Amino acid sequence: MSRTLPVIHRIEEDDSGMYRVEYLDLEFGNGERRRFQRLHGRGHGAVVVVPMIDEDTVLLVREYAAGVHRYELGLVKGRIDAGESPLEAAGRELKEEAGYGARSLVELRELTLAPTYMSHSAHLVLARELYPERLPGDEPEELEVVPWKLDALHELILREDFSEGRSIAALFIAREWLRKEQR
């Protein structure tokens, strides 16, 4: 079913804090009017990197997650700096967080975080042909690098210390992309 997008009658903005908040006065096709909020992050977007140390093994990093106040396993991820492409940002973040460079970087797709109220998205990048190389990053401590076999994702997704949705989605997307490529 194809629907016409709601009409935006007015947008008010609050440009303070970490996000810019927009208040949308909307009218839907059935005549219903509502006020929605939309968050816009600061910056130029984000990357989530799936670093493959070999054809069957991904590298995860364990880092402090302030939002849940624990150490969390996840993929390499970070912001895209001004003037960087998603692939350049992925290569830099991989060196900063995991201590590896990649000879092959492929953008698989874009992921949204919460599209019903946020504009935030992250570029999912597959990194292969890894080699040791470290850049200084903004992390307060060196991150632990944890290799994980793709055929054991069923175990990883049940761990309490692996809960970040982008990392979970990215691993399944990358695994399916790799399987398709091998056919």
Score class of each variant (00 low, 15 high):
Arg134Asn: 01
Gly17Gln: 08
Asp81Gln: 10
Ser163Val: 06
Ala46His: 13
Ala122Val: 09
Leu153Trp: 15
Val58Cys: 13
Arg183Cys: 02
Glu142Ser: 05
Ser167Tyr: 05
Gly137Cys: 02
Ala127Pro: 00
Glu93Gln: 11
Pro115Cys: 07
Pro132Tyr: 00
Glu84Met: 11
Gly31Trp: 09
Pro86Thr: 07
Leu26Ile: 09
Gly74Asn: 06
Ala66His: 04
Glu63His: 14
Ala46Asp: 14
Leu113Gly: 04
Glu93Gly: 00
Glu32Ser: 10
Arg3Asp: 02
Glu129Asn: 13
Arg42Lys: 12
Arg34Trp: 02
Thr112Gly: 11
Leu143Ala: 04
Leu153Ser: 11
Asp56Val: 10
Val125Gly: 04
Arg20Ile: 13
Glu13Arg: 15
Asp161Met: 07
Val145Leu: 03
Glu176Asn: 10
Leu150Ser: 13
Glu63Val: 14
Ala90Cys: 03
Ile53Asn: 02
Arg33Ala: 05
Glu107Pro: 03
Ala170Asp: 06
His123Pro: 02
Ser16His: 13
Thr57Ser: 14
Leu130Glu: 01
Ser163Gln: 11
His9Cys: 08
Asp56Thr: 10
Arg34Leu: 13
Asp56Ser: 13
Tyr23Phe: 12
Leu113His: 08
Val61Thr: 15
Thr112Pro: 03
Leu94Met: 02
Glu96Trp: 01
Ser85Leu: 04
Asp54Gly: 08
Leu108Asp: 01
Phe28Asn: 07
Asp81Ala: 09
Val68Ala: 13
Ser121Ala: 07
Glu55Asn: 11
Glu155Trp: 05
Trp177Asp: 03
Phe36Ser: 07
Arg3Ala: 07
Gly83Ile: 09
Thr116Met: 08
Arg179Val: 04
Lys95Ile: 00
Asp15Glu: 06
Lys149Tyr: 02
Arg20Thr: 12
Leu124Phe: 11
Leu130Asp: 00
Thr57Cys: 10
Glu110Lys: 08
Ser104Val: 14
Gln37Asn: 07
Leu130Ser: 05
Pro132Phe: 00
Arg38Gly: 06
Glu141Leu: 07
Arg62Gln: 15
Leu178Lys: 09
Leu108Trp: 01
